[in-house]
Amino acid sequence: MNFSFDVIWHNLPYMLAAARWTLLISLGGMAISLVWGVFVCAARISSGAVLSRLAALYISFFRGVPLLVQLLLFYYMLPYVGLDLPAIAAAILAVGLCSAAYSAEILRGALQTIPRGQTEAADALGIPTFSLWRRILIPQAIRIGLPSLVNELILLVKVSSLASVVGIGELTRISQNITGETYRPLEIYVAAAVIYFLINLVISLLGRLAEKRLQVA
């Protein structure tokens, strides 16, 4: 066995370029996840029985079916029903919609730790529900749930590798392609693992920094 750093060195530029797609999928997915997650969460804890039931169903579907299956369904089903999205958009959407189910639960858990008195105080002041959510509840929920949300983002970086299955040229896919040309799977995949690891390391460091910042505030 000879581990050739040359192979890695020569292909590193391509892999780093592909890592940008990895980041795009995970960050885009996270953005959808957060925004949509707020709505799912609001629906889940709303007093409307039907709405709440629907949100619960949404959450259990997206958490209960493998993401790879969701991705394939999105990729094959959307054209089937006449929606012609570019593959990358389908991937971001699938990842985001799935992750929203988790974000919604994280936010719900965080909301439960916010004292009820705050809502009552806002009600007493006549603050409308929408403002209450936008200006009081959501900012706090995100702050409380931050560690879990950072974890979720790290998870998204990892699951973005699944997008390789539907042909998107992110890091895993490009690594497969390079392997096909060089016949050096060990070097290339180890290099890919290192890149993933470093991305996640940076995210968790940034997350910890953000946590500190928010604590002081």
């Binding site: 990892k158 699951v159 799977p185 993933y196």
Partner: peptide, 23 residues
Amino acid sequence: EVIRGTPFMIQLFILYYGGPHFG
């Protein structure tokens, strides 16, 4: 930390495709 920081698919590839390179 390393295993938790890398995708399962990459780990699978390292073992399945890279495995033969270390016997």
